[in-house]
Amino acid sequence: MRNRKKTALAALLAAAAMTTAGCGAEVEPVAQAAVGDGLGLEQVRVGLAFDQGGRGDKSFNDAAAAGLDRAKKELQVDAVEVTPGGESEEERVATLRKLAQEGRNPIIAVGFMYAAAVKTVAGEFPDTTIAIIDDDSVSAPNVVSLVFAEEQGSYLAGAAAALKSRSGKVAFIGGVRTPLLQKFEAGFTAGAVRTRPGTEVSVDYVSTPPDFSGFGSPEKAKKIAAGMLASGADVVYTAAGGSGAGSLQAVAARRGAWAIGVDTDQYQTADPGVRDVILTSMVKRVDNAVFQEIQAFIKGDRGGGVKRFDLKTDGVGYAVSNEKAIAPVLKKVEAARQRLLDGTVTAPTKP
């Protein structure tokens, strides 16, 4: 009987891993990534502008970087990556404008904070395709919006949190209180209370606009998480970019507590001292979005519009790398995922 249970669990883990961590469309390597209108045999020259913190945040920016790295390897594009020298609107405009002036095309702006800058630079360089991640407010013939169903992935994170919690209290920490981050909050809360009625969900944000420092303030996130844990929460989901590192530290210092990561499978990248407390991560396949947008450009798709990545397209999901931790709740989380897929339930986008 024990062997049958182990076999069933292994199959479930394998199925979950396949459906939540797909690599997206595969392509054959090409010698010159240069097909499409007007490029002749020139190599495609991609420019990617990171969000606050840049490469190395083990979260949002690193997911974008993974997509760019894959494009360089498999599509053989020439690519540069930059991080604004400051957080002002002028810095963001200058960053995108410089890439356009250098002939980078397409340009990928990582994060909704680039919205105004994208609108400005897209108008100045109408022949340059600019893709922006996490924003669909800019409508222009040369602007592509890459958006995600964060509420769906967060719903599953909430389900896992509620099922794993011993106290019946879980918590959400957002980087900055914006409509985008509130999608994470709404999905997480709904997933928790619908999966385990009576679950208490506490919510806080590291900062509130116009203060956007909440994506790069790990000490503040650590303090918030510690307070939530002291109040009885024993699972903390943090969607705050680089600030998430502080939250992980607080959870690791609390015996019996669990953390849920975001954007990437943070169990794979976290420091050894905090790795084992990561129950799962809400995986947001920014890497797929970046790679597929570059691939589409190469194939001649240069028009603007909105491309949405959701549960059905493996655009969002949850990680199962910490097999021992997730195993006891995996069957019920998978059941919640199926209900989202078949439309039995809908994850809300607003708290």
Rank of each mutant, 00 (worst) to 15 (best):
R2I: 11
R2N: 14
N3L: 15
N3W: 12
R4G: 00
R4E: 13
T7P: 00
T7V: 10
T7W: 07
L9Y: 09
A11P: 01
C23Y: 08
G24R: 10
G24S: 11
V27D: 10
E28I: 02
E28T: 14
A31L: 14
D37Q: 14
G40P: 08
E42N: 12
V44M: 15
L48P: 00
L48N: 03
F50N: 07
G56S: 05
D57E: 07
N61S: 07
A63K: 04
A66W: 02
L68I: 02
R70H: 09
K73N: 06
D78N: 11
A79H: 04
V80D: 06
E81Q: 05
V82S: 03
P84M: 05
S88G: 08
E89G: 11
E90D: 15
R92C: 05
K98Q: 15
A100Q: 06
N105W: 04
I107A: 01
A109Q: 01
A109K: 02
A115Y: 01
V118M: 04
T120G: 01
V121C: 04
E124N: 01
T128L: 03
I130S: 01
D136R: 13
L146D: 04
L146V: 10
F148M: 04
Q152W: 06
Q152V: 10
L156A: 09
L156K: 07
A157P: 12
K164I: 05
R166P: 00
A171R: 10
V176Q: 06
V176T: 13
R177G: 00
A186K: 13
F188K: 11
F188I: 05
R196K: 15
P197M: 11
T208H: 11
G214P: 10
G214R: 05
F215I: 07
G216A: 15
P218C: 09
K220H: 02
K220C: 00
I224Q: 14
I224P: 01
A226T: 13
L229I: 09
A230V: 03
A230L: 11
A233N: 14
A233V: 06
D234Q: 11
V235D: 09
S243K: 10
G244Q: 12
Q249W: 03
A250E: 12
V251Q: 10
V251C: 11
R254P: 00
A259D: 10
A259C: 09
G261H: 07
Y267T: 05
Q268G: 05
A270N: 11
R275H: 13
D276S: 15
D276N: 15
D276H: 12
L279A: 10
V283D: 01
R285V: 03
N288P: 00
F291L: 09
F291M: 07
K299T: 07
G305P: 02
G305Y: 06
R308Q: 12
F309I: 03
L311F: 09
T313W: 06
D314M: 11
G317L: 06
A319L: 03
A319R: 03
A319Q: 08
S321Q: 12
A325E: 12
A325R: 09
I326M: 13
V329A: 06
E334Q: 15
R339N: 03
L340K: 04
T344N: 08
A347H: 10
T349L: 10
P351F: 05
